[in-house]
Design a protein around this nucleic acid. Structure first.
Lengths: 208, 208
DNA sequence: ATTTTGAGCGTACAACTGTTCACTATTTTA
DNA sequence: TAAAATAGTGAACAGTTGTACGCTCAAAAT
């Protein structure tokens, strides 16, 4: 029972996903893709699309999930590198930029659909980004010994700036990307210092 | 010579602009509008559209210009309020939120097309936002006596965070918006403190 | 060995798209 | 007053879209 049939189905499903992902270029948003186009690119008749997804929306949500996986890969890799020592901020930004470079289209999707039309899409993207933020928040809370709410403010601001930079970076050449990365690093430092400062001016919480 | 003809033409041109703006709701992006729909909404035959714009793109760029004007109004109003005294950050954020509330659709356009498809659109939106950033940079440089590059880092980070919050705010109810505004205010404070801190640790630049 | 299932296909259709063209009616110009 | 310019129209076009339907044929279940 190899499931030769289910296997084949999974394969063409992947073809549809890859086809859609492949069409997402600089001047093509997901919502501008048509079911027929994607099916054609995948080498399928338009009607066969329905054997795998009931909708373009359903395909889209699948892509967002895919992007979520990529995001977690990114986090894992950053964590590994950080453990080996060096500036946390620098490493994080560079890892992020690398990922954008090698996963352009999936990041395009993520960054565009964040402010896109379909509410379900936005929700899905925001879920992924929130997860990302929370991980960072935990890390900051422990590593820098900040109160949770201050850590959250810092994490949220950092993620906003990094993702926003990601959206910019996608359309830049290598040199411009480096400049951008340096700017982001400095901004993250400013935020980190500000958070430390805000924490230190707080009344200490003491046991009664 | 009242120019009764040119007058009427300008009027229906406005109708087209308003029609397009009116269609930009939560679940409708500019690129999803069709020429025919817009013409219909404006009470025109599809073909009459061409008497005013050669393209939907041309209409779109006109809308972005419109949004730019709104943005400058916003800046002007914030400046007036700031002169009357009070927390600069608080006033700025609240003014921004007010504007979003009373110009929902035009902000939707601005925030969406920033990461949209058409390169010309993105360029136009980024031009407006850059202008906004530079104004803020000047202000910070003078008011807080920061070096220009530090002031720029702060201004850029602040604008990124505020606009990103704007995109979020559009879909929130009143109470949630207030919470968001408070979070933004705290984050801007963190950034301001961080910038001050970074400045104060710099080697002073002295005349030779 | 026979029946059932289901992935993929081709045809067809109605809805919509942007754009062309020749036309009307009114204002503007000469 | 006659001629030219032009905002707005309606019909028609070729193209694209999503989707319903019935079919095939190989795999799976009986």
């Amino acid at each position: 029972m190899a499931g030769i049939r289910a296997q084949q189905k999974e394969k063409t499903r992947r073809q549809l996903i890859e086809a859609a992902l492949g069409q997402l270029s600089a001047d093509r948003s997901f919502s501008s893709l048509s079911l027929r186009e994607v099916a054609k690119e995948a080498g399928l008749a338009p009607t066969s699309f329905y054997r795998h997804f009931s909708d373009m929306d359903e395909l889209g949500l699948t892509l967002v999930d895919e992007a979520g996986l990529t995001l977690r890969q990114l986090m894992r890799q950053a964590r590994v590198r950080i453990e080996k020592g060096g500036s946390v901020i620098k490493i994080s930004v560079h890892t992020f930029m690398e990922f954008i470079e090698s996963n352009e289209n999936i990041f395009r999707l993520l960054l565009r659909e964040r402010s896109g039309i379909a509410p379900e899409f936005r929700a899905a993207v925001n879920r992924e980004i929130r997860y990302f933020t929370m991980e960072l928040c935990d890390y900051i809370e422990k590593a820098n010994k900040l109160d949770r709410d201050v850590a959250y403010l810092q994490a949220n601001a950092a993620v906003t700036i990094v993702f926003s930079a990601g959206a910019e970076a996608i359309d830049l050449d290598k040199k411009e990307r480096e400049e951008l990365a340096n700017r982001i690093i400095e901004q993250l430092r400013i935020i980190a210092r500000g958070a430390q400062d805000m924490q230190s001016r707080r009344p200490a919480v003491t046991a009664e």
